[in-house]
Design a protein around this nucleic acid. Structure first.
Lengths: 355, 355
DNA sequence: TGTTAGCACTCAACTTGTTAGAGTGCTAAC
DNA sequence: GTTAGCACTCTAACAAGTTGAGTGCTAACA
């Protein structure tokens, strides 16, 4: 072990215990204060009884290894992304106990998925003082459950498409010719017998053509219905996004200057990037907690932030994502803990609602 | 006329033509530059050939009357809210011609109401460099058009409620007992014959009770359907809000400090205040353009802004609101003009879509 | 060999003083 | 009624000096 020093610096393993403790102290202190931390502070407020001079030597080493930097000479050190990475991966202890009264209450109140998720976002933002993004669940491997055409006016049909997971989509179809009830019934039968239970991916052009043929003179309507189905699929892929606490970024000077704030706010307003981010996070398939630090962040405007995401799983392949966005010096321990608790709260709240 | 000077200063009428022109020049100049404007500037850049000293005397008067103020002694003057009010009411000429290519294009592309309004917000934000809020149309005096129950699973019904204006609402109803198709048909018939064409306000508890009685053992289901109807009404009252360009506030230093920006962003994120604002604006019933300056603004967080709203009318009592939020020194002429054009573009685009 | 005290040095941040310029109000002359 | 001139005010920008936190280095110590 000790003879491996001639190898290239393999960072992690090069850190002896003392260096680790010093680095950890620097990080912890910086997370709290947001100010560069100097050798004297470390020397005073840690149990390892070392003079500031010794600490200085060690810090000099740590800087060389790329864990800390000075904003300018004669300032204290601040952690680099690399240090945060190490901290998140192997140094922090989660504060799992962070259960807050609110949650239970808020989740039970409504059976509605959207208000539920909106509340999740709001509670998280209030509890953490960071910005939060919650996505609606994405449903995978969806099967068509039910299709129905109804006449709402002489020249208008209503097409209702229900997909597994009870995602419902309506489309109003304008028709030129009036349809009698029998034809409508036939069409409904035709559509349901052929399409029910079908996975969305299985519906292709050939099938549509065949249906159209069978519908005879009403082929056009089938075409329109298939458009409605296509819409249902698309709507399903576009995740709903609920955000809260975007204003929290103003609490962190490193994010609050006009340029950065403006970009972040735009991202939050347009939601589309957030939707992609959520989709990515869900696709990762790891059900655990994911931490993106600085440049690792999935969205450009967040390159000065850290993003912590969790994937929740409501069963039936319904998975969604919860993300917390804050400054790189966010309280990772608290955030990860809170997110874990919230994830499980959400999942159990949904199970309960179900029965 | 000239002998009325002994009356209390009745502001507007006290302003002789020269004062008006000077005030107008001050306002115009300040709108452009955002800097306090001094007497020399006015003396130079107006056609009334007066020395700066004369202008100074006049400006001193105008200050006394409350139209302009100095941020500090030995600075130029800036207009007060009172001045803006006068300007908006009687001095400005709208730049009605401000028609921008984009509009026509964007509006036609989609038949979808929501994307259409989203686009309106986006185009306005891009064109004006202010923040925009567009509400979905509020439908008044709504009548029920169509109700349908369908079986999607052995223990689940789907209730579809269509309201005039083609607002569609779905509810999944969990039932304990299985229903055969005939019963379903009877229920559908019962609901439709009694409720179709009924205004939402007319549906009261007595009617619901009577329906329940007629439904016999399936009274519970009727109850649930009525809940779905209630939902449809509520969903209809809650206006959808589309925003764009919230980040534009950072372009105006007077709005961009942390405190104000944070409040504005929160308002834009939570949308609920904006929804109320839209509702208010629609209720005003005046179909024209409304300008709120500073404290007049309908929302607290906008007290340092000006808000210009327009009400669009799609016929059938469907009215919505478009609002532009910017600094008090916004380009009122352009905004009012653009808003008028957009209002009519939107209305005609909708008519076209209809046929 | 690792640790420590001491010292010179650096640099941001704050304080103070100075200056330049824009703008005003007032007065006296036109 | 209008204007030129002048003294005055106040901000913004800059320069210079001061303070304090923090460092790196060296020499002494265990």
């Amino acid at each position: 072990m000790s003879t491996e020093e001639n190898l290239e610096p393999k960072s992690d393993e090069m850190l002896d215990d003392r260096k680790k403790r010093i680095l950890c102290a620097v990080i912890r202190n910086y997370l709290e204060t947001g100010e560069p931390v100097g050798s004297r502070t470390i020397s005073k407020y840690t149990d390892l009884n070392l003079s500031s001079a010794t600490i200085r030597n060690e810090m000099s080493d740590l800087e060389e290894m790329g864990y800390i930097v000075q904003p300018h000479t004669s300032a204290g050190r601040i952690p680099t992304d690399k240090a945060y990475r190490l901290y998140v991966d192997s140094m922090m202890e989660e504060k799992d106990k962070e259960i807050n009264e609110l949650k239970g209450l808020l989740l039970e109140t409504e059976g509605k998925m959207d208000t539920m998720l909106k509340n999740v976002a709001k509670v998280l933002a209030n509890n953490t003082n960071y910005a939060t993004v919650v996505s609606s669940p994405m449903v995978r491997g969806n099967k068509l459950k039910f299709i129905q055409l109804s006449k709402v006016a002489s020249n208008q049909l209503l097409a209702v498409v229900v997909v597994e997971g009870n995602v419902i989509k309506n489309n109003i179809i304008n028709i030129s010719e009036d349809l009698d009830d029998e034809t409508l019934l036939t069409l409904n039968l035709l559509l349901n017998t052929h399409l029910n239970g079908m996975a969305l991916e299985e519906i292709n052009l050939g099938m549509i053509a065949s249906l159209k043929a069978q519908a005879g003179i009403h082929g056009d309507i089938v075409g329109e219905v298939m458009d409605a189905v296509a819409d249902a699929i698309k709507a399903d892929e576009e995740l709903e996004i609920y955000t809260s606490g975007a204003n929290n970024i103003f609490k962190y000077p490193e994010l609050a200057d006009h340029e950065k704030a403006s970009q972040l706010i735009t991202t939050f307003e347009e939601k589309q990037m957030l939707s992609q981010m959520a989709a990515m996070s869900i696709d990762k398939e790891e059900t655990g907690i994911q931490v993106y630090i600085g440049d690792e962040a999935p969205v450009g405007s967040m390159k000065d932030c850290s993003v912590v995401t969790a994937t929740y799983d409501l069963g039936d392949g319904m998975k969604g994502s919860i993300a917390i966005i804050g400054p790189k010096r966010m309280d990772y321990e608290k955030v990860v803990g809170t997110l874990k608790t919230m994830k499980s709260e959400l999942e159990t709240a949904y199970q309960k609602k179900d029965k």
